[in-house]
Amino acid sequence: MRVMFFLSVILFGSGVSYAENYNKKVEKDIEEFRGFFMEKFPGITLDDFADGVYAINDNARQQWIAIEDFPPYELDLEEGERLFNTPFANGKTYGDCFPDGGAVRHKYPYFDEQRKEVITLEMAINECRVANGENPLKYKKGDIAKLSAYMAYLSHNKLVDVRVDSESAYEAYLSGKEFFYSKRGKLNMSCAGCHMRYTGRRARSETISPALGHPSHFPVFRLKWGNMGTLHRRYAGCNNNTGAKPFAPQSEEYRNLEFFQTIMSNGMHFNGPASRK
């Protein structure tokens, strides 16, 4: 009995220390990542970065604040609320899948230890639909972006706190990290190339946004799109712009990238949905 007790203490203890090790490794990355931006843009606080490019470009910020007086996503938010509360054919609603009335944006993405993969909010929305006998929605825009926007709105100001508690989760994190720093496409550019090295500089008429805090404000209503879009829609657009073939939204590659990027934003607050140029 004593042997069993000590064995369980050792096993449990080692599990905890492994989890701590993974989180320690990640913490070190966060510190360096955050340090890069703090040094590049002195005087800007961590939470300011949740405003994306509007944290570092005052002129654009003033225009954005004026736009946010009458947010272009307001109707989509209302539609998102209506969709959320509309019963499926079986009489259930999204509220039966998501606790707290849908205020769960801050719980995604997370690494599912049973399934050994990253689960995003949009993925969970579609899994809820399928579990209730409905067809899945398309992932880039439309109803899924409206639902996600409504749920993000409900989770406004909640803390970003994504954990890496196992080797598998750490592997997913590393895969996202590798994607973020790897140059790809005809233009040989990486996410980091634009949104770290060249952030603050111009790409034609636009200032390039900092990567720190990117996932905090999605989904966004982009004026260029003229409607709401998900983070993976933006990923696909970025890859396309650099001459790389985009991955499918909610592919393992993009989910791992979202996992990595959200972890880099740990300690910030969710402030989506938002409008962007």
Binding site: E39, K40, E178, Y181, S182, K183, R184, N188, A192, M196
Partner: peptide, 17 residues
């Protein structure tokens, strides 16, 4: 070529201020 190079060298592209 890009894929094979990046697989080995991606860490060298982590920017440092």
């Amino acid at each position: 070529l890009q894929a094979r190079y990046m697989k080995k060298h991606w860490k060298e592209f982590i920017p440092e201020e």
